[in-house]
Design a protein around this nucleic acid. Structure first.
Lengths: 345, 345
DNA sequence: CCTCCTTGTGGAACCGTTTGCTTTTATCTT
DNA sequence: AAGATAAAAGCAAACGGTTCCACAAGGAGG
């Protein structure tokens, strides 16, 4: 039914191989033939069959994005949307298609990625998260498939990675609060098995101890990247005999939860509690009050992840000295939620 | 390099066709052979090459999702994220992969969709939006490719469609405000070339005239599905000599803009202005105050779109009496933003 | 004038599966 | 015991391209 290379060949009075060469701009095709063939292709409405091409070229010009298990449970959705926007934009620019894939648990994830990569349906993968001891990472690593990790791996140091310097970012956020006179600063963390949670916690600790401030264990609470976690953390902190005056919060979405809780309890932000969080999703400047947030360039992160992945796919033989770790710069966006200075003693 | 069906065949001492039949659970393969072959596959780490399979079966088990031109300009991102979540979840459940595709303008969009469908890379498409006179719709329609439209088409009535009854939804929203005693009700609309904008406007008009209320032309303003539009609409309305006491807003994101503007001008919601909007994205209950919104079941919309598309792909020969238009029920979520009753005269 | 390149094109094998048809082998009938 | 029937497996031709190799024709070099 569909018009094939042979139909074109017959109509143009040449062989299929010639048509194929016209398609790939082979140098040894006369301009005359080339034009004639192209005219016929146009006339017949010919479109190359991508599957057939992939079969012989062993390359698909597409990559897949692995969504974290239940996409709704991790991070804030806007974060992923931004990431995916960046990835798709860059990939399309490089002539690649993007395939979305997810699994409901680690086993399914692994099956999906195995099917896609072993089945030669995609040329590489992007992982949107970095967990500790991730079996998917191990799988990709062992099979030597091209892939990019957004975040960093603790086990392998020689894999492609696009990341924020989360330790530094958290250090900056904390220092910002300290510079406003805050000394009792709490930290609302994410799931402990996510590398990002750890890194941000480390930055916070470093900033505190560099400033000679003590970190009380009850000032650190763990949760998910969800509003509910923020809500819970908030009520925990506000019930403490000695409340913190400021919070570093691991994700904007969590901050929204904190904010909602404070509002319900009639606390005022930033007067009663200052907040700084991470990611600077498009909504963080929209909340009341607007939240100070570390802009980590989510779109840029995705864009770069796609870029380095595709580069590595195309250079797999060259294996030049390609940098493995890419750090996207971050920037603190100071907004109303952290603009209350306290004077101590 | 990769282990193929022939390697398995040789090692198991059977022919490639037998291996293939084992793969597809062909009835006339003895259990003994089947088990032996499966063991060899396991042992060799065999994975079927999806491209080769697609080439002969002329089916790819994947669909593509067409993102609106510049994804960032239309609608709120969370809306699309939810839609995509629904689509990917359902598609994966049905054994389909999802490919994301976008173009920066209509021409590029058309090229992308033509490449994917004419090139037989995907079996069908989902359009996330419905514009008036969309060339992409015409393309798909003329080529008889399976596709689903989220929204509805004005030109073609016999295409697969998953939609909210936006006229009714908007009617409900408006009636809700009227029942609270509001009579001066404004409407913040979206881009006029989007069918959804029109439908919601129609519902609003119907509700108003059914209640004997007049619609003043200055009470309707058009914009984009962006916060900025809400902000602008708000300042327009609040500068009117006779201000509306309530607003029906075409999208939650736009409501956020209205809210921000009102907050800046020290107006109170809902006392000074009541708000109802559409879509009920996860954040609308989080804003201060929480926004009343029509829940249109975004995830469900996406889920269903994928479901009917895949059904139609698989039944393309049967062509039974498949319903073309699917309506997802909506529900008004009343929250603080619309809970201020006014008494008239 | 003969050989040797170069240029442009055709022929055919191959990429990894599926599947209609055929062959082989085993199981019944009578 | 022989022919019929059914079950199991093999053969080979696709699917729609790409690409190595061969080959013809024309021009250059000796």
């Amino acid at each position: 039914m569909a018009v094939t290379i042979k139909d074109v060949a017959k109509k143009a009075g040449v062989s299929p191989s010639t048509v194929s060469r016209v398609l790939s701009n082979h140098p040894r095709i006369s301009t005359e033939t080339s034009q004639r063939v192209k005219a016929v292709m146009e006339q017949l409405g010919y479109h190359p069959n991508i599957m057939a091409k992939s079969l012989v070229s062993k390359t698909t010009n597409s990559i897949c994005v692995l969504l974290p298990k239940p996409a709704e449970e991790l991070f804030s959705n806007l974060f992923f949307m931004e990431l995916i926007r960046g990835i798709v934009t860059q990939a399309n620019r490089s002539g690649y298609d993007v395939l979305l894939s997810s699994g409901v648990n680690e086993k399914e994830e692994l099956e999906a990625v195995s099917r896609l990569l072993n089945g030669r349906r995609v040329d590489g993968a992007i992982l949107l998260y970095s967990r500790k001891d991730d079996p998917v990472v191990d799988f990709l690593y062992e099979h030597k498939y091209p892939f990019t990790l957004i975040g960093r791996s603790e086990n392998h140091h020689d894999i492609l990675t696009v990341d924020t310097d989360n330790v530094q970012a958290s250090y900056d956020a904390t220092k910002h609060l300290i510079s406003m006179g805050h000394e009792r600063i709490g930290f609302v963390s994410g799931p402990p098995n996510l590398v990002v949670s750890q890194d941000r916690l480390t930055g916070y600790r470093n900033a505190m101890s560099d400033s000679g401030l003590q970190v009380r264990s009850e000032w650190i609470v763990e949760g998910e990247f969800l509003q509910e976690s923020g809500y819970r953390a908030m009520s925990f902190f506000m019930n403490l005999p000695q409340r913190p005056t400021a919070l570093v919060v691991v994700d904007d979405m969590v901050s929204f939860g904190v904010l909602r809780g404070l509002h319900e309890l009639k606390f005022k932000v930033p007067e009663d509690l200052c907040l700084v969080s991470f990611n600077n999703i498009p909504l963080s400047e929209l909340s009341t009050p607007p939240i100070s947030s570390i802009d980590i360039g989510i779109y840029h992160l995705g864009y770069t992840a796609s870029q380095v992945l595709i580069q590595s796919i195309q250079n797999d033989s060259v294996t030049g000295p390609m940098p493995k770790r890419h750090i996207i710069p971050h920037r603190l966006m100071v907004r109303e939620s952290s603009t209350f200075a306290v004077s101590n003693k």
